[in-house]
Nucleic acid binder design. Structure first.
Lengths: 200, 200
DNA sequence: ACCTGAACACCGTTCAAGT
DNA sequence: ACCTGAACACCGTTCAAGT
């Protein structure tokens, strides 16, 4: 995309290049257990170069997770169809969510694993909370329209939705959603069960 | 517990001793990213000794996951109170489930992470399915008693329950259930929302 | 200002020996 | 039959130099 793309870095933006390579490795190896040395190798720099841009392997992983949350946010935005009834909107958002996780399993896992090196990174848990916000908005709309009930606190219902979707995403990623056992569209079926509980 | 517990292994059952040490490290470090060498060290054997009992670090991890599933099964059994109405039983089982995950975060994560080295270990996914079975039984009972509806296929409802509980467990583990935002008992509140969807 | 090469400590794994 | 010690390849990280 830039003027001379034969040797894009070495004095271009190695920062981005490293992130891209790392995303590739994440996808290929199915986990964040790749080595920094190979990231460097694949990017065409010495194994010490990344340390000029990331203090740590953990720092790289954190950056990847942030990219992931942005991408998830974009996917959810893209799936929005405000002209539909709220139930359908909620379903559609949930399907888009699970589809994202299914398409980027290692990235999705990384986003949520305090396991990695993610510790209590404020940025991360805040972005995770943003996902939560999307659900909240739809639930509020549903209540205003009288489609959803107010039996439970709004926050509880939102949490129920998020947990459901998060759980389905992870079960899907880990190959625990066997279609023979659970029907050909387990996700929408399971979600419908939940949405019924929200009905007025 | 055996006759001479001063030096329990060296010629006792090193197999079990290694597993126990590994479980400790798992709990302490909060992830399966400990090293085999330290497991050996803490167990009082050379770093090569474990390879006499486990072909691999992955093999050890798989064993830990199996232990975990057994423990989870025990926890669920212990929480059974057949005299209560089904909704309460379902709630109680779910609470026990989340409590287990909360008490053994790293172990619970390991149990479900294809991430580790768990690959498609048949034993594991089968034990995971067993958890699923418990839910199925309760749902069936609920239907027989006319307390739960049959709007959706049984399998879908069971999946919805499992995903909900799995999702809550992981959100709890990863510290995303902030009590200020979500009430003092987010889990039971979220679950109630789901159970309402099952009502006849 | 950014990158390289050598170096350090450490880990997973193997294997020839030891008891 | 089970364990040890040395050894190998490899990784994360650092740092003195290079441009």
């Amino acid at each position: 995309m830039s003027k001379d793309s034969c040797r894009p870095y070495h004095h271009g933006n190695l920062f981005q290049a490293l992130i891209n390579t790392a995303l590739e490795l994440l996808q290929e190896q199915g986990s964040w257990q790749f080595n920094l040395r190979e990231v460097a190798r694949r990017t065409g720099v010495s194994h010490a170069a990344p340390y000029r841009h990331f203090s740590d392997k953990t720092a790289l992983l954190t950056e990847l997770a942030l990219v992931g949350f942005d991408a998830l946010g974009d996917a959810l935005s893209a799936s929005r169809q405000p002209e539909n009834p709220v139930q359908q909107q909620l379903l559609a958002a949930a399907m888009a969510y699970v589809a994202f996780a299914d398409a980027n399993p290692a990235l999705y896992r990384l986003m949520f694993s305090a396991d990695a090196g993610n510790r209590e990174d404020v940025h991360l848990s805040q972005r995770a909370q943003n996902t939560f916000t999307v659900v909240l908005a739809l639930l509020e709309q549903g209540r205003r329209e009288g489609v959803f009930n107010g039996k439970r606190p709004l926050q509880s219902q939102a949490l129920a939705c998020w947990a459901e979707v998060h759980g389905l995403a992870l079960l899907a990623i880990d190959g625990l959603l066997l279609p023979e056992k659970v029907g050909n569209d387990p996700v929408s079926a399971a979600l419908s069960t939940l949405v019924e509980g929200l009905g007025a």
